[in-house]
């Protein structure tokens, strides 16, 4: 069953028929039993009737002609704006017309030469393949710090061939093709 405090805020919507039919039926059923809510609904209808006592006003006779004149003026302004844009475009076109004209007449041989040069440069760039550096993957190049590089360097000592006894290496990490081998010693 509906309570008065729930029905009260709904009365305006009920008077305007702005609710589902089943809610209208429920409120109608409540109003039949509750005199205070029925009185409230009656007061809302009465207020509405009072509001409708106001006469409606009519626009003056020159409302429509005035409005249409103003609308037409807007159309003219818009057209003028469009024509102004066109005028700017035309001016730009005319200012660059000399370029077009000279290209058509005098610039044609130069343009042909320039385009041939462009084509030649494109072709030469396509055909030219620069020699790329060899991949640096040896240990000396890969070494990060100077101390590492120093460690990798080989020290040579010039020894007369007859006194040649044993290779003197500062490091034995790497075998260089320049290091005299045992084969040389035998010789």
């Amino acid at each position: 069953m509906l309570k008065c405090e729930n029905v009260h805020p709904q009365l305006s919507a009920y008077v305007d028929r702005e609710m589902p039919l089943w809610t209208i039926r429920l409120i109608q059923w409540h109003l039949k039993r509750c005199s205070s809510c029925a009185y409230e609904a009656m007061r809302i209808r009465q207020t509405d009737k009072i509001l409708h006592q106001l006469d409606s006003v009519k626009t003056s006779d020159n409302f429509l002609p005035d409005l249409m004149r103003r609308a037409a003026a807007i159309t003219v302004i818009e057209r003028e704006q469009i024509s102004a844009i066109r005028r700017i475009l035309r001016r730009l076109e005319s200012s660059f017309a000399w370029l077009r004209y000279s290209f058509r007449t005098r610039m044609r041989p130069y343009a042909v030469v320039a385009s041939l040069a462009l084509i030649a440069s494109v072709v030469s760039l396509t055909l030219y393949q620069p020699r790329l550096p060899l991949p640096a993957n040896d240990a000396l190049t890969l070494a990060q710090t100077p101390s590492e590089k120093q460690a990798l360097l080989v020290e040579f000592e010039i020894v007369p061939i007859n006194q040649f006894s044993k290779p003197h290496l500062s490091s034995n990490r790497r075998t260089s093709p320049f290091i005299p081998t045992d084969q040389g010693k035998e010789k």
Partner: peptide, 26 residues
Amino acid sequence: KSLIHRARQNMKTLLIEVGIGESSHA
């Protein structure tokens, strides 16, 4: 819904203040 409800309530009160709609015989 709430705006219209409050508007009608206020309108009713104000009309009573000015002497319109204070009775059912208005």
